[in-house]
Design a protein around this nucleic acid. Structure first.
Length: 566
RNA sequence: CGGGGCGUGGCUCAGCCUGGUAGAGCACCUGGUUCGGGACCAGGGGGUCGGAGGUUCAAAUCCUCUCGCCCCGACCA
């Protein structure tokens, strides 16, 4: 294989549709091409990355005793109907019909398929524990694919599943995966953080996400110096208790013409948002709910879903009057009939608050929870930066983050719904206790991950580097480069330098790399030599520069090329 | 799904408002010169202007519809 034959189609200018830095770099560096929205072709360079990462993953999983499967991507509807997720997944699932008009779908994940194997084949606790995995393509019809490879509709996932006879066994399998993931990401060179996560529609009792902090991420992570870290969907915090003055014995109606929002009321009545009750009507199935949070707080829908055990949605504006007697903007918990009322803890013990009167253009002041209305109390609010850590009381910080892995204790959700049981040592039939564990393979190779958040100076770990382009070599190509001597040596024509692939040319475009950094292989030099935004982090071929040109590059301790002092 | 933007050689874009010859840079091909850090000279190929319909003597340009892509939001293992 010769350098001139290697297919690495770099782009001098970024295609107009790319905006996110990592996407631009991947496109310009000749890694990927877009086929449709959220669907990408991996060119040889990207495929090389994927293979290296999957090699690491296989290596670690096999060493842990996991066994690799290859499951179908095309599924019959029945197994999804059994688990209840045929409906639950909604429009995110790619659905189709076969020629006999049977419902089919493309797999979003494989709990159902693995569970169906388990129920047919696992009979006794003596066969447990089992850890099964595969590395496979997943399909998800995302509402809005975005940001290059950040949110796609087809991607590669390593998914593994543990099967244990009891919960203690699940704890062990879960812990093994936790440690395993750390090893895998370490080898991939990611700078990540493990955070507590909510289980979402996977169900289950406990869950951690592996996150890379980056502004390109779509998740928010709350974190504290003491080590506490959680997804914002899950995070909790301590609040300063607020003191309220005593108010009237009964709520007092106040005319508030045209005042709808919390801010409106703050201005109109001079009452701070923290002394108001924010009242939201939600629909859970057919049942309407009234959800209350403090006026200056935000409802955390993930927490609401967790409390309810299912998804609730905001009521539509036209549904609200029939439920509450007034439009949104004048709602409150006092004297509502037949509504389940869920309240955030922050309203507990307060008094003399203000809320809507369930009558358009009126509010109530002097409202005291517990006296004027009864509610069920839960943690329902979104944590805000600066609030006190629940463990150590230090202020919490919030960062954007990119999820690269997620592990779940599923428990018996799937084994019960799908009838996967074994006989335990007492001879009793018990549902298998499952865990599920996923790694987004492409995510693990993204520039943000490799660089710990910044798309610049990426430093991929040894194992995710390409192994083919390592030797320094001068001379290539047409025009000003490569050099006569080289051409003579190899008898190639101008513009057609033929170099053995193992010793690729390096500096074809190096001189301009400071402004045109992405081109292979020049970007490496740029990435390590200067601070600018450059370099395709995904294992761009690494090259070194002969010292006689005034630059010296050498392989660094962590197997990247770093610049030597001049 | 709501809002916004964009579709013109491979890439980036101009042209559109005010209809009349489809352009530039880069890329590509040929020949020559040069060539140890994105060479130069000469020549050349390549575009149903996303698609359909309409208005007009005439449409890249005006109108209608439609498809695609991007961004913001909603949503999201």
């Amino acid at each position: 294989m010769r350098w001139s034959q290697i297919f690495i189609p770099t782009l001098r200018e970024a295609p107009a549709e790319a905006e996110v830095p990592s996407h631009i770099l991947l496109l310009r560096g000749g890694y990927v091409r877009q086929l449709a929205s959220g669907i990408y072709s991996y060119l040889p360079l990207a495929q090389r990355v994927v293979l290296k990462i999957t090699r690491i993953i296989r290596d670690e999983l096999d060493r842990m005793g996991a066994q690799e499967f290859a499951l179908p991507a095309l599924h019959p509807a029945e197994i999804w109907q059994e688990s209840g997720r045929w409906e639950g997944m909604g429009p995110n699932m790619f659905r189709l019909k076969d020629r006999s008009d049977r419902d089919m779908c493309l797999g979003m994940t494989h709990e159902e398929v693995f569970a169906s194997i388990a129920r047919n084949e696992l009979r006794s606790y003596r066969q447990l524990p089992q850890i099964w995995y595969q590395i496979q393509t997943k399909f998800r019809d995302e509402p809005r694919p975005k940001s290059g490879l950040l949110r796609v509709r087809q991607f590669t996932m390593k998914d593994s599943y543990s099967f244990d006879v009891d919960w203690e066994g699940l704890d062990r399998s879960y812990r093994k995966h936790y440690d395993l993931y750390c090893r895998i990401y370490d080898r991939c060179g990611l700078r990540y953080r493990v955070v507590e996560a909510s289980s979402g529609m996977m169900g289950g009792s406990q869950s951690h996400e592996f996150m890379v902090l980056t502004d390109a991420g779509e998740d928010m992570v709350v974190h504290c110096a003491c080590g506490y870290a959680a997804n914002l969907e899950k995070a909790t915090a301590e609040l300063e208790p607020l003191q309220d003055e005593a108010g009237p014995d009964t709520p007092q109606p106040v005319p508030t013409p045209g005042q709808k929002t919390i801010d409106d009321i703050s201005r109109f009545l001079g009452i701070p948002a923290s002394r108001q009750i924010k009242s939201l009507i939600y629909r859970f199935g057919n049942q309407p709910l009234l959800v209350l949070v403090r006026g200056d707080h935000q409802l955390n829908e993930a927490k609401l879903h967790a409390v309810l055990g299912g998804e609730a949605h905001p009521a539509l504006p036209e549904e609200i009057p029939a439920v509450a007697g007034a439009d949104a903007g004048s709602l409150g918990p006092v004297e509502v009939a037949g509504l389940r009322i869920l309240s955030d803890h922050a309203l507990h013990g307060r008094r003399n608050l203000t809320c809507g009167a369930n009558r358009n253009d009126f509010h109530l002041s002097g409202v005291t929870p517990g006296r004027d209305y009864q509610a069920e109390y839960f943690d329902l609010r979104v944590v805000q930066a600066g609030e006190a850590c629940a463990r150590c009381r230090s202020p919490l910080s919030i960062h954007k983050a990119l999820e690269v892995g997620h592990i779940f204790k599923l428990g018996t959700k799937y084994s019960e719904s799908m009838g996967a049981t074994v006989l335990n040592s007492q001879g009793r039939e018990v549902p298998v206790v499952m865990g599920s564990y996923g790694i987004g393979v492409e995510s693990a190779g993204r520039p943000e991950g490799a660089s710990g958040g910044q798309v610049q100076g990426c430093r991929p770990g040894r194992d995710s580097l390409p192994d083919q382009f390592r030797e320094p070599q001068a001379g290539h190509g047409k025009g000003g480069m490569g050099g006569t001597s080289y051409r003579k040596d190899h008898g190639s024509r101008s513009g057609q330098a033929e170099l053995p692939c193992a010793k690729p040319a390096f500096g074809r475009r190096l001189s301009d790399s400071r402004i045109e950094p992405v081109n292979i292989p020049a970007c490496r030099a740029e990435a390590f030599g200067h601070g600018a935004v450059t370099g395709v982090g995904w294992m761009t071929p690494v090259v070194s520069m002969p010292a006689r040109y005034g630059y010296s590059w050498e392989r660094g301790r962590d197997s990247i090329w770093t610049r030597l002092p001049e």
